[in-house]
Write a protein that binds this DNA or RNA. Structure first.
Lengths: 106, 106
DNA sequence: TATATTTGCAACCAATTAGTTTCATATAAA
DNA sequence: TTTATATGAAACTAATTGGTTGCAAATATA
């Protein structure tokens, strides 16, 4: 099983979970209310996010609050760095201008 | 079939392809030489990247040069924006300091 | 023209994924 | 103590994924 941050964010439900807990720590039950699937399905996503170290947990009695661990998100940001240089370059912008002109001519 | 940028970058081979063509446009055959799999397998990855609009192609006789279209990469960057605010915040940094102290105590 | 090269596509297959239902355990509340 | 609630884990399933081989079409080269 591949368990990395890229695989973690590949699923739309997991991305939604990440966004939700980024705003505020939540229990699996509270999270599940936001989705049209069983609590167990959501829990499986949480498990994957935990394995990928995208979330941290905090036990409070029988409840478990999940919150975001931003370190792995930074990893994606770091990977994007190499492309940022390209899309910020003048050459690339010129390329975009040219393709816009092409589209207008059609 | 889900075909979005997040699914596109989920596979390590596809991420490698993206990095390679970001440096210079390449044909499928040239790309395939970098991987330990058949040319057809690489071509299938290229097809997915095309469907996700991560790559653009340029025909040159019977050869097809694939190059990166950075627009979709920007989309990831945009999604990360909401978390950037968190990991750059003082509160989060304090949180990291505290967890570092905890680890040291162990 | 005959042959070689570059490419995409279809059929197939094993492993993985994302969901389900069922169940066990731990904690809280009556 | 009994009952309700919160959670995780296991077993199962259908769909998807990532690879393979084989083939057809288009273009280049001898």
């Amino acid at each position: 099983m591949r368990r990395d941050i890229y695989q973690a964010i590949a699923d739309p439900t997991r991305r939604a979970i990440i966004t939700l807990i980024a705003l505020q720590a939540m229990t699996p039950n509270a999270l599940a209310e936001h989705f049209d699937m069983t609590r167990q399905a959501v829990s499986k996503h949480i498990k994957i996010l935990t394995e990928c170290q995208v979330v941290k947990q905090e036990q409070a009695g029988r409840e478990i609050y999940y919150k975001l661990d931003t370190n792995k998100m930074k990893e994606i940001d770091k990977w994007l760095e190499q492309f940022r240089k390209i899309w910020e370059s003048r050459f690339n912008q010129l390329d975009n201008v040219l393709s816009t002109i092409k589209k207008k001519k059609k």
